[in-house]
Amino acid sequence: MGTVFRTEITVGYEDEGSGEPLLLVHGHPFNRSMWRPQIAHLGQAGWRVIAPDLRGYGESTVVPGTTPLETFARDLLALLDHLGIERCVLGGLSMGGQIVMECWRHFPERIRAVVLADTFAAAETAEGRAARHAMAERLVREGMTGYAREVLAKMVAPHHLAARPEVAAHVMEMMTSTAPEGAAAALRGRAQRPDYTAQLSQMPVPALVVVGTEDTYTPVSDAREIHDRMPDARLVLIERAAHLPNLERPDEFNAALEEFLRSLPADAAADTPGTPGGPA
């Protein structure tokens, strides 16, 4: 059952399980339902899993125009404050991974560890900026359906389209139900994103870097670069998965994520008396 949080916008989110918090950030053009396999598994494995809809997606408020990654990061910080969570493991896929890196720029003290799935750290190229702006205009003009049909076979590996039609249907439903104005605003914001590459070496927290071996949007080489630059990272390749390994091969993804979470040292902040989310 979803919950809503109202500040300058309304944010829909899931908050399942109990224990130490794990906040998962979806990619574009999806919504929080992309994390269903992880919410179900980890919520029963001793973790409190929080998965919000980003502004412009799912049940959250659509704000036309441009949504910089910093705005998404500030929305997540407001949600953590609302929930009384001082520190969390923060994970994201694709655009969600870039939002995780943006969160580190602004409030690293709130982040215990990071999960970066099928994402990349470099700034957008001039060609990429032009393409994102052109796509934003197309989505507003034409809607999401044509775009969704074009990219489905890159989001989900072609062999899974036939073998796992329920996954393909879920991904298609997420994309086509997204408001074009919200998706366009995010595309314009991503075109402006900074280069996070140098920042990676300054992120001393434990990191899990995950990528599908058949991902053409963010290939294995991008994941290796992130892994090699971070001081305390482990790299996991999900075989026979494309851009959404958490949905295409959820058992393998969940196993890697749970192993990483179980390896984390105890969070001293969570045990500090009077700390939000800790013992009173």
Rank of each mutant, 00 (worst) to 15 (best):
T3F: 09
H133W: 13
V114N: 08
L76Y: 08
G91R: 03
E8F: 03
Q98V: 04
T216L: 02
T10D: 14
G46N: 08
P279L: 07
G277I: 08
A269N: 01
P265Q: 10
A157L: 00
E258G: 02
M155H: 00
H159I: 03
P206K: 03
S33N: 08
T67R: 10
I99T: 14
P52Q: 06
D75M: 06
L200C: 09
D232S: 14
V167S: 02
G128I: 12
L90D: 07
E70W: 06
E258N: 14
T176S: 01
H41W: 10
A242Y: 00
R112K: 14
V25L: 15
I85D: 05
P265Y: 07
M172Q: 13
A255E: 15
A136Q: 09
T275H: 03
M155S: 01
R129G: 11
A233L: 10
R138S: 15
N31D: 15
Y13E: 07
V167G: 07
F260C: 10
H243K: 01
A51W: 03
E70H: 13
D53F: 04
A268N: 03
A268L: 13
R36A: 15
R6P: 00
F5K: 03
I85S: 01
M135H: 10
E109P: 03
P206Q: 03
G97T: 06
V63T: 15
P180Q: 04
L83S: 13
R132H: 09
V63S: 08
M175F: 06
G146F: 01
G182Y: 01
P273C: 06
A45R: 13
A223M: 02
L261D: 10
D75W: 06
M95F: 04
A121N: 08
Y13H: 10
G143L: 11
P279Y: 05
E225G: 01
A51Q: 04
A136K: 08
Q38V: 13
F260A: 12
E173H: 14
G182Q: 04
R129W: 04
F30R: 05
I50T: 09
R193K: 12
M203W: 01
D222I: 00
L187H: 05
A121R: 02
T145I: 12
N254C: 13
L139N: 02
T275M: 14
Q98F: 00
M101P: 04
